[in-house]
Structures are given as C-alpha cells and as structure tokens.
Amino acid sequence: MTRDQADLIRELTSREATGGPGHTEDAGLTAAEAEAVLNRLAGHLVPQPTTAETAALINRLRPLLPRPAARRFRTSGLSREPLAHFLRTQLHHFRPLWWLASLGFVLLGLGAGSFLADWGLSPAVLAPPLIIGGVLYSFHSLRGAALELELSCPVTPAQVALGRILVPLLYCLVLGALPVLAGTITSGPAVLVAPAPAFLPSAILAVRLFLGWAAALFLFAGLMLTLTLHFGTYTAAGLSTALWAGLAGLHRLPLSPFSLSHGALWTPLQVGGLTAGLLLLCAALRGDRLRRWVERRGR
C-alpha cells in the first residue's frame, strides 16, 4: 500500500466516525473495504511510468523532435573570397553546344572569306552576330527567381552583369584571332589579303584586321548590355541585329566599320568604335543603372 492510499483510507474511515450533516455514501466503508476498493481501482488505472521508462520514450521520440541546426558549416565551409573563382563559375552558364556553335560560325565565316571579300565586307562583319548571340545566351536565363537568387549572394549587381558578359566577350575575342592568325600564317584566304596594299606587311595587316574585329565586338557588346538592361535580352538582340544589318548594308561607304576599303580615317574610326564600346560597357555597369534594372526585372 502506498502512502497516498493509506492517507485516503484514513480519511474515508474517519468520516464514518464523525457522521452528522457531512455524512456521505462513502462514509460507511471500513478500513478493509476502503483498501479493497482502492486496490481494485489501482488495477484499472494506467500505471505511472518510471523515470527509466520516460527516458526510454524520449529517446524513441527524439529523432522526430525538431533539433537545432548544426551551425559548424558557416565557420569552416565558407570562404570570404568568392570572387576568386567568380569568372570560372560563370562558365556554368555556357553549354558545350554554345562553344561549338560559336566556333562553327567563325569557321563558316572563314570558309566564306572570299565571298565576303567579293562583296567588299571585312571579317569584322561576323563579330556582331557572334556577340549578340553570346550575350543573348548568357543573359536569357538571368531573370525572375534566378536573378533574385544571384543578387542575394555576396556579389554586386555589376559583378553579376560583368561576369555574364565577360565569358562571351573573351571567347569571341579569341575566336576573332583565329581567322587573323590563319590569314597571316598561311597568307591564304582572300578575305585577308584582298584589302592589303602591296607594301603592307602581313603583321600590320593582321593587327588592323584584329582591331576591326575587336572594335565591332566591343561596340556591339556594350550596345547589347545597355539595351538588355533597358529593354530585356530579346528586344536588345532584335535592335542590335537590326543595327548590324543596317551597317552591313552600308558597307560600301568608306567609313563603314565593316568595309574592306581602309581609308585614312579607318584606324581612328575603329579605335573610336572600340572606345565607344568600352564606354557603353562601363556606363551600363554603373550602380544606378543596374539598380533600375534590378527594380524593373524584379517587379
């Protein structure tokens, strides 16, 4: 018998002795009867769990309980120099198909070199569609949730935009060297030798051809980035393509960037185009311009 039961029996039997106005039904029990009743009740009650049983139950339930997150990762798994690998991480956006398609486009242009030369077109005419396609490919996925997720990373909007445009720009620049190198080494394709005055060494010719390529590339890269931030990638690609087609159509004019006839003003014009492209890129990457882009795209 527990101590509580003994107290209860004492209480029930003491009521028998007092009786009077407070007399109740249970007051008629003897001590033995009360004990028997309590023993029977105890048999029907749910047994109180012991400390060991409680601990075992908690252990069984513990996997189901919310646990504080293990925060060790923050201290050991993060590096404070995410920009060190920033450019390399941008390669993620470019599938092998894009690399191959761009290379194929330049090789096709190289093959059609004599055809272009017959029309009086410089190889630089291939640069704009190449960079337009590259920027379009690079930026078309940078919208909605993807844009918001990238901007919530510890990088600036300028780094996000620059990272996206740098890969196609550098790749197209390298691709531009291919026809130039091929031409100067082999002196082969007519496109490279056609505009060359007889006294011009092939090295200078190569530099001029590469300058023309780079100027067209930077000009249209700057234009594409600026228009992309204002109107979105597809509108930017449409407008840039229209401008490229217009300029290519006007290639018979001596000052056209895609003309083969290298007049006296040709070199300053190419340098001007290159500078304008760089200025457009810098202006597009300014903080307030990017802020408006983020607000517009995120709305």
């Binding site: 590096s79 995410p82 991480t89 996925s141 919208r143 990238e150 990373c153």
Partner: peptide, 24 residues
C-alpha cells in the same frame, strides 16, 4: 517565383550558387 532554367540540372545549379555564396 520559381526557377525556370531549361537544360539545367538542380545539382549543377546549386553548385554554381554555392560558389557565388562563397562555399569553399
């Protein structure tokens, strides 16, 4: 908004974001 990235696998995309977030 949900991610709409055609031809992209979840693991590759998360690995890219992990790089941006500074995960070693």
């Amino acid at each position: 908004e949900l991610l709409d990235l055609p031809e992209t696998r979840a693991k590759a995309y998360l690995t890219y974001l992990a790089a941006l977030k500074g995960v070693r």
